[in-house]
Write a protein that binds this DNA or RNA. Structure first.
Length: 487
RNA sequence: GGCGCAUUCGUCUAGCGGUCUAGGACACCGCCCUCUCAAGGCGGAGAUCACGGGUUCAAAUCCCGUAUGCGCUACCA
């Protein structure tokens, strides 16, 4: 492996960062960090019709959010800039011209109509649709005349017939293509912008990219790139084509079948750690059974050799599990800012709850949540008194003698002063003993009365967190409400 | 249609010629723990390694073919 490892993530600013893009970016990032190389962000904005306002900012923001910091890029600069392809137009024209001079490319003046017609005819004859090289045979004078007349033109690659092009890929080995099936690819469009193929090759060379790590959808066009490198007299980078991310029905991951934008996952409450962890495991494995990874460990373990060849279905269930795992891995203090953010967006924001209170909730709920949001919506009883009582639990746990038992307990609770968790427990157990009943006969009704539901943290934690006064209030209202409902 | 890539439990995967009567994880089921729900622990079910031929003393692992899936086939990336 060469000493100067330089890789790049080169998205088009067409909207948001796709999870497939995230995976590609991540693998580039991991490879760079692992090998002490450079990770570069380059914006491939050569299709003006697909350009979306604000997409670049959005891309950068989400990349920052997940922690994929790049060494060179549009907003951080670098010695190989500019990092927007739209600002590098002269460069592409320079090399396109060089190719023309060498006979590897040529001007073409076809109208879109002719091209369309040509295609249809070829399709009808069941031929491979490709340009017929009509304008390759224009004389220099004719070309000059048309150019001077201001006729719209494109520049096409002059692909030679019946040659073999070998693509060497670290993940897939050697792939052979015959040039007969390769079209005379347009290099420069009639609007003066380059196509991906030219821009990509020129920039990768100029930016000294050592490894091209990108999605598998690029494999079929790699022979064109190889030709370009050859004609320009440039050294080939190492290619690595990553397996695709798939929908559950095994088609290429797309919207329609679930969320596809990284920002959607962020909005849904996924931790960046979980997303990174999950996406890293889609098509890569260290060769062992480890599944829980932090970024540093990924960097340490990553290698292109560990990348799979087959596409991977994006399995949301596993992401969910990993999200829970990462929540559990974090301390309550680390979780606090995340929970606060959710809390402040919630209907309970005006409660002015203290950090201490939130911390208690976090500790009580950490083992039972999958999302940060769950710290609020899965345990609303920490924020408000129950509005209703779960009927199934009611039926199962609220017996005829329950109100009486609860009243006794209530009296005991009222005597408590500044009770700790242990005080609640002691009191409840002692009361149960006094009444000659199992502690469960009190525990379950108390939980129901205080939380309205039959699940959650241990009751004594619950009571302690909610606090004596509120506990008493809630038990009293439960006694009232449930009695009246029974009658 | 053409070209290319891929194919191990439902899903993500381990496996790189003998240790595989194929291992782990998610999801599912059961048990334990227990005041509930989780978490955790233990166990279960789940893959004739797509199929068919070879090569070899020996193949999930190498080769060929078939099937299926997917990708590409644009003045999109």
């Amino acid at each position: 492996m060469s000493e100067n490892i330089r890789v790049r993530f080169a998205p088009s600013p067409t909207g948001y960062l796709h999870v497939g893009g995230l995976r590609t970016a991540l693998f580039n990032y991991l490879f760079a960090r692992k090998n002490k190389g450079k990770f570069i962000l380059r914006i491939e904005d050569t299709d003006r019709s697909r350009y979306v306002e604000g997409a670049v900012e959005n891309l950068i923001e989400t990349l920052k959010w997940v922690g994929l910091d790049y060494d060179e890029g549009p907003d951080v600069g670098g010695e190989f800039g500019p990092y927007f392809q739209s600002q590098r137009l002269e460069l592409y024209h320079k090399y396109a011209k060089e190719l023309i001079d060498k006979g590897y490319a040529y001007y073409a003046f076809d109208t879109p109509e002719r091209l369309k017609q040509l295609r249809e005819e070829q399709l009808k004859k069941k031929l491979q649709p490709k340009y017929d090289k009509r304008d390759l045979y224009l004389s220099k004078e004719e070309v000059k005349k048309k150019l001077e007349a201001g006729e719209p033109y494109v520049i096409r690659l002059n692909v030679p017939p019946s040659e073999k092009v070998i693509v060497t890929d670290v993940i897939r080995g050697t792939v052979e293509f015959n040039t007969d099936i390769i079209d005379d690819q347009i290099l420069i469009k009639s609007d003066g912008y380059p196509t991906y193929h030219l821009a990509n090759v020129v920039d990768d060379h100029l930016m000294k990219i050592s490894h091209v790590i990108r999605g598998e959808e690029w494999l079929p066009s790699t022979p064109k790139h190889v030709l370009l490198y050859k004609y320009l007299g440039w050294e080939l980078p190492v290619f690595a084509h990553l397996p695709l991310l798939l929908n559950p029905d095994r088609s290429k991951l797309s919207k329609r079948q679930g969320d596809v934008a990284v920002e959607d996952y962020k909005a849904k409450g996924y931790l960046k750690e979980a997303l990174i962890n999950f996406v890293a495991l889609l098509g890569w494995n260290a060769g062992d059974d480890k599944e829980f990874y932090l970024m540093d460990e990924l960097i340490e373990k990553f290698s292109l050799e560990g990348v799979n060849k087959a596409g991977a279905v994006f399995n949301i269930e596993k992401l969910n599990w990993l999200n829970g795992e990462h929540i559990r891995f974090k301390s309550a203090e680390e979780l606090l800012p995340l929970v606060k953010e959710e809390y402040e967006k919630s209907e309970y924001a005006n409660l002015n709850l203290s950090d201490e209170y939130l911390l208690k909730i976090i500790n009580a709920m950490k083992e039972r949540v999958e999302f940060v949001k769950d710290f609020i919506y899965t345990c609303k009883y920490f924020y408000e008194a129950p509005k209703e009582y779960d009927e199934n639990v009611l039926r199962k746990r609220w017996k005829a003698d329950t109100p009486e038992h609860l009243k006794t307990l209530l009296d005991e609770f009222k005597k408590l002063e500044n009770p700790a968790k242990e005080d609640f427990e002691q009191t409840l157990r002692a009361t149960a003993e006094k009444l000659g009943i199992g502690a469960g006969k009190l525990i379950h009704p108390v939980r129901l009365a205080v939380s309205g539901v039959g699940k959650g943290p241990g009751v004594f934690d619950l009571l302690y967190i909610i606090g004596k006064d509120e506990v008493i209030r809630r038990i009293e209202t439960a006694l009232e409400k449930i009695k009246t409902e029974e009658n």
